[in-house]
């Protein structure tokens, strides 16, 4: 009711457009409007902050996902130089002989 009264006043003042959105104090616009440990989601709902799960899930997932995809590249690069070095060494040896 409070929200709707304010909305009517601001609508009349031209500060907001008609039908700009349903007036609902239960919805959030920013995370700081939510209780401690909760964040505002894109659905305008306060939901538990994913800190504990996200720091393990997102960071861990990122690292876990990143490491395997990076490791083969690194190992192939590491494996590359020895392969490339052996023929060179062989050619050099043949030339000297």
């Amino acid at each position: 009711m409070r929200c709707r009264g304010i909305a009517v006043g601001l609508l009349l003042a031209g500060l907001i457009a008609p039908g700009a959105g349903a007036c609902n104090d239960a919805l959030c616009t920013r995370s700081s409007e939510c209780d401690e440990g909760f964040v505002c989601t894109p659905e305008a709902r306060c939901e538990p902050a994913p800190d504990a799960s996200a720091s393990g899930g997102v960071d861990g997932g990122g690292v876990d996902a990143g490491t395997p995809s990076g490791t083969p590249d690194a190992s192939s690069l590491d494996a590359g130089p020895p392969d490339a070095a052996l023929p060179d060494a062989g050619i050099d040896l043949d030339a000297d002989l």
Partner: peptide, 19 residues
């Protein structure tokens, strides 16, 4: 100051009493 807070973009739009 006191009035109305609003949010929009992806997801649902929202309006509520501001701080």
């Amino acid at each position: 100051g006191y009035g109305l807070a609003f949010g929009g973009g992806s997801g649902a739009s929202s309006q509520r009493a501001s701080g």
